[in-house]
Simulated assay, not measured.
Amino acid sequence: MMNKIKTLVAAFLLISFATFAQSNDQPLKIGYTNVEYILLQMPESKQIESELKTHSTQLEAQLKTKYADYEAKLQAYEKGAATMDKVVRDDKEKELMNLNNSIQEFQRSAQASLQQKEKSLVDPVIAKIDKAIKEVRVENGYTYIISNQALLAGPEDGDISPIVLKKLGVDPAKAQQTPEPAASKPAATTTPAKTTTKKKNK
């Protein structure tokens, strides 16, 4: 689940650039951080993961029920197809096709539902982090705060992550035990198993 959260965070591209004009006598001061890293250190991340897992489990249970019904009817059809009247056989095949289509539609809807649930949980936390980053920039005199994913090289004291975490009420010393990611990797999308193509015995 956390891989999906990482992808969503990366999609926000929350790089807090200043919008004010730099004066000639003001030295350029650039800091950097990683929104994904900060999110993973926050207590909210565990709650998000838990809620997504619960939601996913419910969807998977419903999918398994639908698939079990399809499998049972498919097996019954295959067992008796040879002796069925054509009208009955055609009706059973139509029923199986509708069930198969229903399963595929549920898979698509479940994926969309999970993504929407994830977004609704992550968005408020991202907004909270973004606000903290902007406050840290102003309070510490940074001209720009950039994402460390776009950083090729820079001084260690330019990393504002510990300051942001402290502002968010997270102990930086404990947070630093978790390695900070250099870049986000595309998350593997969780997709329910594809349904078995029904067989027709005529």
Rank of each mutant, 00 (worst) to 15 (best):
K66C: 03
N101P: 00
D85G: 07
V87T: 14
A76N: 15
L39V: 05
A112T: 13
K53D: 10
E93R: 12
A82K: 13
Y37K: 06
Y77H: 03
L52A: 08
A76E: 14
L39Y: 02
K73N: 15
R89M: 11
L39I: 02
K73H: 15
K94H: 14
V122H: 06
V125S: 08
E44P: 01
L74G: 01
L96Q: 05
E36T: 06
Y70K: 03
V122Y: 07
G80H: 10
E78Q: 15
P43D: 09
L59P: 01
T33R: 06
N98R: 13
Q75A: 15
Q116T: 13
M42C: 05
M84T: 06
L39A: 03
K53E: 07
H55C: 08
S113C: 02
A110V: 01
R108K: 14
V88Q: 10
L74P: 00
K73M: 12
Q104C: 02
K64W: 01
Y70Q: 07
N98Q: 12
A68K: 08
I129W: 09
K86E: 15
T33N: 09
E118A: 06
D91S: 14
S113R: 02
R89F: 04
V35W: 00
I48M: 11
L99M: 15
Y67D: 07
E93G: 00
N100S: 11
D85M: 07
L59Q: 00
S113F: 01
R108N: 12
R108F: 04
Q111E: 07
D91L: 12
K79I: 13
N34S: 15
A127W: 00
K119G: 01
F106C: 00
K46F: 00
E93Y: 02
A76T: 13
Q75D: 05
L59E: 00
D90K: 14
E78P: 03
S45R: 05
D90P: 09
V88K: 05
S56F: 06
H55P: 13
T54C: 04
K46G: 06
Q58P: 13
A68P: 01
S50E: 13
L52G: 07
K117D: 04
L63D: 01
V122D: 01
E78Y: 12
I126E: 01
K66E: 10
L39H: 02
T33A: 04
Q62F: 12
E36K: 04
A81D: 03
F106A: 00
K79R: 15
S50F: 15
H55K: 15
K73I: 12
Q75G: 09
E78N: 14
K94G: 05
L63F: 03
V122M: 06
Q111S: 13
K119H: 06
P124A: 06
D69C: 08
E36M: 01
S113D: 10
